[in-house]
Design a protein around this nucleic acid. Structure first.
Lengths: 219, 219
DNA sequence: TTGCGGCAACGCAAAGTTGCAGTTGCGCAA
DNA sequence: TTGCGCAACTGCAACTTTGCGTTGCCGCAA
Protein backbone atom coordinates (compact mmCIF):
# COMPACT_ATOMS: atom_id res chain seq x y z
CA UNK A 1 0.00 0.00 0.00
CA UNK A 2 1.22 3.45 -0.87
CA UNK A 3 0.84 5.93 1.92
CA UNK A 4 3.19 8.73 1.10
CA UNK A 5 1.10 11.74 2.11
CA UNK A 6 3.14 14.08 -0.03
CA UNK A 7 1.18 12.80 -3.00
CA UNK A 8 -2.37 13.68 -3.82
CA UNK A 9 -5.07 11.08 -3.99
CA UNK A 10 -4.80 11.03 -7.75
CA UNK A 11 -1.11 10.17 -7.79
CA UNK A 12 -1.47 7.63 -5.01
CA UNK A 13 -4.18 5.85 -6.92
CA UNK A 14 -2.07 5.89 -10.02
CA UNK A 15 0.86 4.30 -8.22
CA UNK A 16 -1.41 1.73 -6.67
CA UNK A 17 -2.94 0.82 -9.98
CA UNK A 18 0.50 0.40 -11.50
CA UNK A 19 1.60 -1.76 -8.60
CA UNK A 20 -1.53 -3.88 -8.86
CA UNK A 21 -0.93 -4.39 -12.56
CA UNK A 22 2.69 -5.37 -12.03
CA UNK A 23 1.81 -7.79 -9.32
CA UNK A 24 -1.07 -9.27 -11.25
CA UNK A 25 1.19 -9.79 -14.25
CA UNK A 26 3.90 -11.53 -12.25
CA UNK A 27 1.42 -13.63 -10.31
CA UNK A 28 -0.42 -14.86 -13.36
CA UNK A 29 2.71 -15.58 -15.36
CA UNK A 30 4.10 -17.66 -12.51
CA UNK A 31 0.79 -19.47 -12.12
CA UNK A 32 -0.26 -20.00 -15.73
CA UNK A 33 2.85 -19.44 -17.82
CA UNK A 34 3.89 -16.61 -20.10
CA UNK A 35 1.84 -17.50 -23.15
CA UNK A 36 -1.25 -18.42 -21.19
CA UNK A 37 -1.35 -15.07 -19.45
CA UNK A 38 -3.34 -12.49 -21.37
CA UNK A 39 -3.58 -8.76 -20.95
CA UNK A 40 -7.27 -9.25 -20.28
CA UNK A 41 -6.57 -11.56 -17.38
CA UNK A 42 -3.97 -9.22 -15.91
CA UNK A 43 -6.34 -6.28 -16.20
CA UNK A 44 -9.15 -8.28 -14.63
CA UNK A 45 -7.04 -9.25 -11.67
CA UNK A 46 -5.91 -5.66 -11.25
CA UNK A 47 -9.46 -4.42 -11.59
CA UNK A 48 -8.97 -2.12 -14.52
CA UNK A 49 -10.00 -2.31 -18.13
CA UNK A 50 -7.63 -3.72 -20.73
CA UNK A 51 -7.52 -0.28 -22.28
CA UNK A 52 -6.18 1.14 -19.06
CA UNK A 53 -3.47 -1.48 -18.96
CA UNK A 54 -1.92 0.17 -21.99
CA UNK A 55 -2.11 3.53 -20.33
CA UNK A 56 0.43 2.19 -17.87
CA UNK A 57 2.61 -0.12 -19.92
CA UNK A 58 3.76 -0.26 -23.51
CA UNK A 59 3.36 -3.98 -23.69
CA UNK A 60 2.64 -7.12 -21.75
CA UNK A 61 6.36 -7.72 -21.43
CA UNK A 62 6.98 -4.30 -19.94
CA UNK A 63 4.36 -4.95 -17.30
CA UNK A 64 5.89 -8.28 -16.38
CA UNK A 65 9.32 -6.73 -16.07
CA UNK A 66 7.84 -3.72 -14.34
CA UNK A 67 9.55 -1.30 -16.67
CA UNK A 68 8.38 2.22 -16.34
CA UNK A 69 9.07 5.03 -18.69
CA UNK A 70 12.73 5.71 -18.57
CA UNK A 71 13.48 8.77 -16.60
CA UNK A 72 17.08 9.69 -16.12
CA UNK A 73 17.11 11.96 -13.15
CA UNK A 74 19.64 14.70 -12.68
CA UNK A 75 21.12 12.69 -9.83
CA UNK A 76 21.56 9.58 -11.91
CA UNK A 77 23.13 11.58 -14.69
CA UNK A 78 25.51 13.22 -12.24
CA UNK A 79 26.50 9.82 -10.87
CA UNK A 80 27.08 8.59 -14.38
CA UNK A 81 29.28 11.55 -15.18
CA UNK A 82 31.32 10.89 -12.06
CA UNK A 83 31.65 7.27 -12.95
CA UNK A 84 32.79 8.18 -16.45
CA UNK A 85 35.46 10.42 -15.01
CA UNK A 86 36.63 7.74 -12.61
CA UNK A 87 36.38 4.52 -14.60
CA UNK A 88 35.83 5.55 -18.17
CA UNK A 89 32.96 5.97 -20.54
CA UNK A 90 32.21 2.31 -21.10
CA UNK A 91 31.86 1.52 -17.43
CA UNK A 92 29.60 4.48 -16.93
CA UNK A 93 27.30 3.68 -19.83
CA UNK A 94 27.03 0.00 -18.96
CA UNK A 95 26.17 0.92 -15.42
CA UNK A 96 23.61 3.41 -16.63
CA UNK A 97 21.92 0.85 -18.86
CA UNK A 98 21.77 -1.74 -16.13
CA UNK A 99 20.48 0.81 -13.72
CA UNK A 100 17.71 1.92 -16.00
CA UNK A 101 16.75 -1.50 -17.33
CA UNK A 102 17.48 -3.60 -14.34
CA UNK A 103 16.09 -1.54 -11.54
CA UNK A 104 12.80 -3.42 -11.33
CA UNK A 105 14.72 -6.66 -11.20
CA UNK A 106 16.95 -5.74 -8.34
CA UNK A 107 14.98 -3.25 -6.36
CA UNK A 108 11.35 -4.23 -6.64
CA UNK A 109 9.49 -5.91 -3.85
CA UNK A 110 8.61 -8.76 -6.16
CA UNK A 111 12.10 -9.11 -7.51
CA UNK A 112 12.51 -12.79 -6.71
CA UNK A 113 9.43 -13.64 -8.72
CA UNK A 114 10.63 -11.46 -11.54
CA UNK A 115 14.04 -13.06 -11.55
CA UNK A 116 12.41 -16.44 -11.70
CA UNK A 117 10.36 -15.39 -14.71
CA UNK A 118 13.33 -13.88 -16.50
CA UNK A 119 15.27 -17.04 -15.84
CA UNK A 120 12.53 -19.09 -17.45
CA UNK A 121 12.03 -16.69 -20.33
CA UNK A 122 15.30 -15.00 -21.13
CA UNK A 123 13.87 -13.51 -24.30
CA UNK A 124 11.86 -11.13 -22.15
CA UNK A 125 14.90 -9.18 -21.10
CA UNK A 126 16.69 -9.74 -24.36
CA UNK A 127 13.73 -8.38 -26.25
CA UNK A 128 13.54 -5.26 -24.15
CA UNK A 129 17.25 -4.78 -24.44
CA UNK A 130 17.07 -5.16 -28.18
CA UNK A 131 14.50 -2.43 -28.34
CA UNK A 132 15.90 -0.22 -25.69
CA UNK A 133 17.62 2.02 -28.20
CA UNK A 134 14.40 3.15 -29.71
CA UNK A 135 12.63 3.26 -26.38
CA UNK A 136 15.20 5.48 -24.90
CA UNK A 137 16.13 8.55 -26.80
CA UNK A 138 16.92 9.64 -23.28
CA UNK A 139 19.77 7.20 -23.04
CA UNK A 140 21.26 8.53 -26.24
CA UNK A 141 20.88 11.99 -24.89
CA UNK A 142 22.60 11.04 -21.67
CA UNK A 143 25.48 9.49 -23.58
CA UNK A 144 25.70 12.66 -25.63
CA UNK A 145 26.13 14.61 -22.44
CA UNK A 146 28.91 12.26 -21.45
CA UNK A 147 30.61 12.67 -24.80
CA UNK A 148 30.36 16.43 -24.59
CA UNK A 149 32.36 16.33 -21.36
CA UNK A 150 34.94 13.98 -22.81
CA UNK A 151 38.07 15.68 -24.12
CA UNK A 152 38.40 13.11 -26.87
CA UNK A 153 35.11 14.22 -28.33
CA UNK A 154 35.60 17.91 -27.67
CA UNK A 155 36.05 18.85 -31.29
CA UNK A 156 32.86 17.27 -32.52
CA UNK A 157 29.79 19.18 -33.51
CA UNK A 158 26.34 18.33 -32.24
CA UNK A 159 25.32 16.03 -35.08
CA UNK A 160 28.50 13.98 -35.04
CA UNK A 161 28.24 13.63 -31.31
CA UNK A 162 24.71 12.31 -31.66
CA UNK A 163 25.89 9.68 -34.09
CA UNK A 164 28.81 8.72 -31.87
CA UNK A 165 26.50 8.49 -28.90
CA UNK A 166 24.35 6.04 -30.81
CA UNK A 167 27.32 3.87 -31.57
CA UNK A 168 28.66 3.93 -28.02
CA UNK A 169 25.23 3.09 -26.69
CA UNK A 170 24.90 0.26 -29.14
CA UNK A 171 28.27 -1.15 -28.16
CA UNK A 172 27.48 -1.06 -24.47
CA UNK A 173 23.95 -2.28 -25.01
CA UNK A 174 25.30 -5.23 -26.95
CA UNK A 175 27.70 -6.01 -24.17
CA UNK A 176 24.91 -5.95 -21.62
CA UNK A 177 22.75 -8.12 -23.83
CA UNK A 178 25.54 -10.64 -24.29
CA UNK A 179 26.14 -10.72 -20.56
CA UNK A 180 22.45 -11.25 -19.88
CA UNK A 181 22.35 -14.04 -22.43
CA UNK A 182 25.20 -15.83 -20.71
CA UNK A 183 23.64 -15.30 -17.34
CA UNK A 184 20.31 -16.69 -18.49
CA UNK A 185 21.97 -19.75 -20.01
CA UNK A 186 23.99 -20.23 -16.86
CA UNK A 187 21.08 -19.71 -14.53
CA UNK A 188 19.00 -22.18 -16.47
CA UNK A 189 21.73 -24.78 -16.28
CA UNK A 190 22.93 -24.22 -12.78
CA UNK A 191 19.57 -23.17 -11.38
CA UNK A 192 21.38 -22.25 -8.23
CA UNK A 193 19.92 -19.91 -5.71
CA UNK A 194 21.36 -16.49 -6.28
CA UNK A 195 21.31 -13.17 -4.72
CA UNK A 196 20.00 -10.40 -6.90
CA UNK A 197 22.45 -7.76 -5.81
CA UNK A 198 25.47 -9.86 -6.62
CA UNK A 199 23.90 -10.95 -9.89
CA UNK A 200 23.63 -7.34 -10.88
CA UNK A 201 27.28 -6.80 -10.10
CA UNK A 202 28.37 -9.86 -11.97
CA UNK A 203 26.37 -8.74 -14.98
CA UNK A 204 27.93 -5.33 -14.89
CA UNK A 205 31.40 -6.72 -14.54
CA UNK A 206 30.94 -9.16 -17.38
CA UNK A 207 29.39 -6.59 -19.69
CA UNK A 208 32.25 -4.21 -19.09
CA UNK A 209 34.80 -6.92 -19.75
CA UNK A 210 33.13 -7.84 -23.01
CA UNK A 211 32.95 -4.27 -24.22
CA UNK A 212 36.53 -3.57 -23.29
CA UNK A 213 37.77 -6.70 -24.92
CA UNK A 214 36.22 -5.76 -28.23
CA UNK A 215 37.57 -2.23 -27.97
CA UNK A 216 40.95 -3.66 -27.21
CA UNK A 217 41.16 -6.17 -29.97
CA UNK A 218 39.56 -4.20 -32.75
CA UNK A 219 41.34 -0.91 -32.46
CA UNK B 1 7.43 -12.42 -64.40
CA UNK B 2 9.61 -15.27 -63.21
CA UNK B 3 10.57 -17.65 -65.93
CA UNK B 4 13.60 -19.48 -64.64
CA UNK B 5 12.89 -22.99 -65.88
CA UNK B 6 15.22 -24.55 -63.35
CA UNK B 7 12.49 -24.07 -60.77
CA UNK B 8 9.38 -26.17 -60.50
CA UNK B 9 5.96 -24.64 -60.85
CA UNK B 10 5.60 -24.62 -57.09
CA UNK B 11 8.69 -22.49 -56.53
CA UNK B 12 7.92 -20.20 -59.41
CA UNK B 13 4.47 -19.53 -58.03
CA UNK B 14 5.95 -18.85 -54.63
CA UNK B 15 8.37 -16.31 -56.04
CA UNK B 16 5.61 -14.69 -58.03
CA UNK B 17 3.35 -14.42 -55.03
CA UNK B 18 6.12 -12.83 -53.01
CA UNK B 19 6.84 -10.39 -55.81
CA UNK B 20 3.18 -9.52 -56.13
CA UNK B 21 2.96 -8.85 -52.40
CA UNK B 22 6.04 -6.65 -52.41
CA UNK B 23 4.83 -4.67 -55.35
CA UNK B 24 1.35 -4.31 -53.95
CA UNK B 25 2.77 -3.06 -50.67
CA UNK B 26 4.99 -0.47 -52.30
CA UNK B 27 2.29 0.65 -54.70
CA UNK B 28 -0.33 1.13 -52.03
CA UNK B 29 2.00 2.87 -49.60
CA UNK B 30 3.02 5.34 -52.28
CA UNK B 31 -0.59 5.88 -53.29
CA UNK B 32 -2.33 5.97 -49.91
CA UNK B 33 0.38 6.50 -47.33
CA UNK B 34 1.95 4.19 -44.80
CA UNK B 35 -0.75 4.24 -42.13
CA UNK B 36 -3.58 4.09 -44.60
CA UNK B 37 -2.26 0.95 -46.20
CA UNK B 38 -3.51 -2.19 -44.50
CA UNK B 39 -2.38 -5.76 -44.75
CA UNK B 40 -5.84 -6.60 -45.99
CA UNK B 41 -5.54 -4.16 -48.86
CA UNK B 42 -2.10 -5.44 -49.80
CA UNK B 43 -3.30 -9.02 -49.73
CA UNK B 44 -6.33 -8.13 -51.82
CA UNK B 45 -4.25 -6.44 -54.47
CA UNK B 46 -1.89 -9.40 -54.53
CA UNK B 47 -4.79 -11.82 -54.70
CA UNK B 48 -4.00 -13.83 -51.60
CA UNK B 49 -5.60 -14.05 -48.21
CA UNK B 50 -4.32 -11.87 -45.38
CA UNK B 51 -3.25 -15.03 -43.62
CA UNK B 52 -1.00 -15.91 -46.52
CA UNK B 53 0.60 -12.51 -46.33
CA UNK B 54 2.10 -13.54 -43.02
CA UNK B 55 3.39 -16.73 -44.53
CA UNK B 56 5.66 -14.58 -46.64
CA UNK B 57 6.52 -11.70 -44.38
CA UNK B 58 6.96 -11.19 -40.67
CA UNK B 59 5.26 -7.85 -40.71
CA UNK B 60 3.83 -5.15 -42.89
CA UNK B 61 7.12 -3.29 -42.67
CA UNK B 62 9.11 -6.27 -43.90
CA UNK B 63 6.88 -6.54 -46.93
CA UNK B 64 7.28 -2.87 -47.76
CA UNK B 65 11.04 -3.13 -47.47
CA UNK B 66 11.02 -6.45 -49.27
CA UNK B 67 13.05 -8.16 -46.60
CA UNK B 68 13.27 -11.86 -46.94
CA UNK B 69 14.45 -14.31 -44.38
CA UNK B 70 18.10 -13.71 -43.92
CA UNK B 71 20.15 -16.29 -45.66
CA UNK B 72 23.87 -15.89 -45.60
CA UNK B 73 25.10 -17.93 -48.50
CA UNK B 74 28.47 -19.61 -48.55
CA UNK B 75 29.53 -17.14 -51.20
CA UNK B 76 28.58 -14.11 -49.16
CA UNK B 77 30.33 -15.52 -46.14
CA UNK B 78 33.46 -16.15 -48.19
CA UNK B 79 33.39 -12.59 -49.51
CA UNK B 80 33.00 -11.32 -45.98
CA UNK B 81 35.97 -13.34 -44.81
CA UNK B 82 38.05 -11.94 -47.63
CA UNK B 83 36.98 -8.45 -46.80
CA UNK B 84 37.87 -8.99 -43.16
CA UNK B 85 41.32 -10.13 -44.14
CA UNK B 86 41.81 -7.16 -46.44
CA UNK B 87 40.18 -4.27 -44.58
CA UNK B 88 39.53 -5.51 -41.08
CA UNK B 89 36.68 -6.96 -39.12
CA UNK B 90 34.63 -3.81 -38.76
CA UNK B 91 34.55 -3.10 -42.47
CA UNK B 92 33.55 -6.64 -43.21
CA UNK B 93 30.74 -6.77 -40.68
CA UNK B 94 29.33 -3.38 -41.67
CA UNK B 95 29.33 -4.47 -45.27
CA UNK B 96 27.66 -7.72 -44.38
CA UNK B 97 24.90 -5.97 -42.49
CA UNK B 98 24.23 -3.52 -45.28
CA UNK B 99 24.28 -6.30 -47.79
CA UNK B 100 21.76 -8.36 -45.88
CA UNK B 101 19.50 -5.52 -44.83
CA UNK B 102 19.92 -3.25 -47.79
CA UNK B 103 19.81 -5.62 -50.70
CA UNK B 104 16.15 -5.00 -51.49
CA UNK B 105 16.80 -1.27 -51.44
CA UNK B 106 19.65 -1.30 -53.89
CA UNK B 107 19.02 -4.30 -56.05
CA UNK B 108 15.29 -4.64 -56.38
CA UNK B 109 13.43 -3.64 -59.49
CA UNK B 110 11.27 -1.31 -57.45
CA UNK B 111 14.17 0.21 -55.59
CA UNK B 112 13.39 3.81 -56.46
CA UNK B 113 9.93 3.49 -55.00
CA UNK B 114 11.34 1.82 -51.91
CA UNK B 115 13.94 4.52 -51.44
CA UNK B 116 11.23 7.12 -51.71
CA UNK B 117 9.22 5.36 -49.02
CA UNK B 118 12.19 4.98 -46.72
CA UNK B 119 12.98 8.62 -47.19
CA UNK B 120 9.47 9.55 -46.11
CA UNK B 121 9.39 7.05 -43.25
CA UNK B 122 12.90 6.60 -41.87
CA UNK B 123 11.57 4.67 -38.92
CA UNK B 124 10.89 1.77 -41.25
CA UNK B 125 14.55 1.03 -41.75
CA UNK B 126 15.49 2.09 -38.26
CA UNK B 127 12.94 -0.26 -36.79
CA UNK B 128 14.16 -3.20 -38.77
CA UNK B 129 17.73 -2.36 -37.90
CA UNK B 130 16.85 -2.16 -34.24
CA UNK B 131 15.41 -5.63 -34.39
CA UNK B 132 17.94 -7.15 -36.69
CA UNK B 133 19.91 -8.69 -33.86
CA UNK B 134 17.11 -10.90 -32.80
CA UNK B 135 16.03 -11.58 -36.33
CA UNK B 136 19.45 -12.70 -37.33
CA UNK B 137 21.04 -15.35 -35.24
CA UNK B 138 22.66 -16.02 -38.57
CA UNK B 139 24.51 -12.74 -38.47
CA UNK B 140 25.90 -13.56 -35.05
CA UNK B 141 26.95 -16.92 -36.36
CA UNK B 142 28.67 -15.34 -39.32
CA UNK B 143 30.54 -12.95 -37.07
CA UNK B 144 31.55 -15.90 -34.92
CA UNK B 145 33.07 -17.51 -37.97
CA UNK B 146 34.97 -14.30 -38.63
CA UNK B 147 36.23 -14.18 -35.07
CA UNK B 148 37.33 -17.78 -35.21
CA UNK B 149 39.60 -16.93 -38.11
CA UNK B 150 40.99 -13.86 -36.40
CA UNK B 151 44.29 -14.40 -34.63
CA UNK B 152 43.32 -11.94 -31.91
CA UNK B 153 40.45 -14.15 -30.91
CA UNK B 154 42.27 -17.42 -31.39
CA UNK B 155 42.51 -18.24 -27.72
CA UNK B 156 38.81 -17.88 -27.00
CA UNK B 157 36.49 -20.77 -26.39
CA UNK B 158 33.19 -21.14 -28.16
CA UNK B 159 31.06 -19.42 -25.54
CA UNK B 160 33.30 -16.37 -25.20
CA UNK B 161 33.46 -16.07 -28.93
CA UNK B 162 29.68 -16.06 -29.13
CA UNK B 163 29.52 -13.24 -26.62
CA UNK B 164 32.20 -11.26 -28.41
CA UNK B 165 30.41 -11.79 -31.70
CA UNK B 166 27.29 -10.29 -30.16
CA UNK B 167 29.17 -7.23 -29.06
CA UNK B 168 30.93 -6.74 -32.38
CA UNK B 169 27.64 -7.11 -34.21
CA UNK B 170 26.02 -4.63 -31.90
CA UNK B 171 28.78 -2.11 -32.43
CA UNK B 172 28.60 -2.39 -36.20
CA UNK B 173 24.82 -2.47 -36.18
CA UNK B 174 24.76 0.69 -34.15
CA UNK B 175 27.11 2.35 -36.58
CA UNK B 176 24.91 1.39 -39.50
CA UNK B 177 21.84 2.61 -37.68
CA UNK B 178 23.45 5.93 -36.87
CA UNK B 179 24.54 6.31 -40.49
CA UNK B 180 21.04 5.55 -41.72
CA UNK B 181 19.59 8.05 -39.27
CA UNK B 182 21.86 10.76 -40.59
CA UNK B 183 21.10 9.85 -44.15
CA UNK B 184 17.37 9.93 -43.53
CA UNK B 185 17.60 13.32 -41.85
CA UNK B 186 19.72 14.59 -44.70
CA UNK B 187 17.56 13.15 -47.42
CA UNK B 188 14.48 14.63 -45.85
CA UNK B 189 16.08 18.05 -45.74
CA UNK B 190 17.86 18.05 -49.05
CA UNK B 191 15.29 15.94 -50.86
CA UNK B 192 17.69 15.79 -53.74
CA UNK B 193 17.58 13.13 -56.33
CA UNK B 194 20.15 10.50 -55.53
CA UNK B 195 21.51 7.39 -56.96
CA UNK B 196 20.94 4.27 -54.93
CA UNK B 197 24.30 2.67 -55.58
CA UNK B 198 26.24 5.67 -54.36
CA UNK B 199 23.91 6.03 -51.39
CA UNK B 200 24.77 2.53 -50.35
CA UNK B 201 28.46 3.31 -50.60
CA UNK B 202 28.14 6.49 -48.65
CA UNK B 203 26.24 4.69 -45.94
CA UNK B 204 28.87 2.02 -45.71
CA UNK B 205 31.66 4.56 -45.58
CA UNK B 206 29.97 6.61 -42.91
CA UNK B 207 29.11 3.59 -40.78
CA UNK B 208 32.66 2.36 -40.91
CA UNK B 209 33.98 5.77 -39.97
CA UNK B 210 31.65 5.98 -37.00
CA UNK B 211 32.55 2.53 -35.74
CA UNK B 212 36.26 3.15 -36.15
CA UNK B 213 36.07 6.47 -34.44
CA UNK B 214 34.49 4.97 -31.36
CA UNK B 215 37.01 2.15 -31.33
CA UNK B 216 39.75 4.66 -31.66
CA UNK B 217 38.69 7.03 -28.97
CA UNK B 218 37.50 4.57 -26.39
CA UNK B 219 40.32 2.10 -26.34
C1' DT C 1 -17.90 26.21 -1.17
C1' DT C 2 -18.42 26.10 -5.73
C1' DG C 3 -17.05 25.85 -10.37
C1' DC C 4 -13.87 24.68 -13.87
C1' DG C 5 -9.87 22.52 -16.38
C1' DG C 6 -7.67 18.45 -17.04
C1' DC C 7 -6.34 13.90 -16.35
C1' DA C 8 -7.59 9.09 -15.76
C1' DA C 9 -10.47 5.31 -16.81
C1' DC C 10 -13.33 3.38 -20.04
C1' DG C 11 -15.76 1.26 -24.13
C1' DC C 12 -15.46 0.62 -28.83
C1' DA C 13 -13.60 -0.30 -33.16
C1' DA C 14 -9.92 -1.34 -36.23
C1' DA C 15 -5.50 -3.07 -37.45
C1' DG C 16 -1.52 -6.18 -36.83
C1' DT C 17 -0.15 -10.85 -35.70
C1' DT C 18 -0.29 -15.80 -34.68
C1' DG C 19 -1.90 -20.68 -33.88
C1' DC C 20 -4.86 -24.27 -35.54
C1' DA C 21 -7.14 -27.16 -38.65
C1' DG C 22 -8.97 -28.21 -43.15
C1' DT C 23 -8.39 -28.25 -48.32
C1' DT C 24 -6.00 -28.20 -52.60
C1' DG C 25 -2.64 -29.33 -55.74
C1' DC C 26 2.53 -29.87 -56.89
C1' DG C 27 6.27 -33.20 -57.02
C1' DC C 28 8.01 -37.57 -56.74
C1' DA C 29 8.25 -42.55 -56.75
C1' DA C 30 6.19 -46.96 -57.66
C1' DT D 1 -0.17 -43.26 -64.81
C1' DT D 2 -1.52 -43.43 -60.30
C1' DG D 3 -1.23 -42.56 -55.60
C1' DC D 4 0.93 -40.53 -51.63
C1' DG D 5 3.29 -36.92 -48.92
C1' DC D 6 4.03 -32.44 -48.15
C1' DA D 7 3.81 -27.60 -48.77
C1' DA D 8 0.95 -23.66 -49.75
C1' DC D 9 -3.29 -21.42 -49.13
C1' DT D 10 -7.18 -20.54 -46.53
C1' DG D 11 -10.77 -19.30 -42.89
C1' DC D 12 -11.34 -18.61 -38.23
C1' DA D 13 -10.59 -17.29 -33.69
C1' DA D 14 -7.84 -15.25 -30.23
C1' DC D 15 -4.74 -11.86 -28.67
C1' DT D 16 -2.01 -7.47 -28.71
C1' DT D 17 -1.98 -2.79 -29.54
C1' DT D 18 -3.67 1.89 -30.71
C1' DG D 19 -6.86 5.88 -31.80
C1' DC D 20 -10.96 8.28 -30.58
C1' DG D 21 -14.65 10.03 -28.11
C1' DT D 22 -17.11 10.02 -23.54
C1' DT D 23 -17.65 10.19 -18.68
C1' DG D 24 -16.42 11.04 -14.07
C1' DC D 25 -13.73 12.86 -10.56
C1' DC D 26 -9.40 15.14 -8.51
C1' DG D 27 -7.09 19.43 -7.68
C1' DC D 28 -6.95 24.16 -7.83
C1' DA D 29 -8.63 28.86 -7.75
C1' DA D 30 -12.20 32.23 -7.21
Amino acid sequence: MITDPSLGLRDRKRLETRARLEEAAVTLVLRDGLEQTTVDAISDLADVSPRTFFNYFDSKDSAILGLREIDITAGLLADTIDRAAADGLVDAVVHLILDVMGAPLTRSTIKEDRMEIVRRHPHLLAGQLAQFTQLAAQLTEAVQVLLARDPRYAGQNEADRAASADVVLSLCGGAVRAAVKEWAADAAAVSARFDTASTSHRLEFRAISLAREVLDKLS
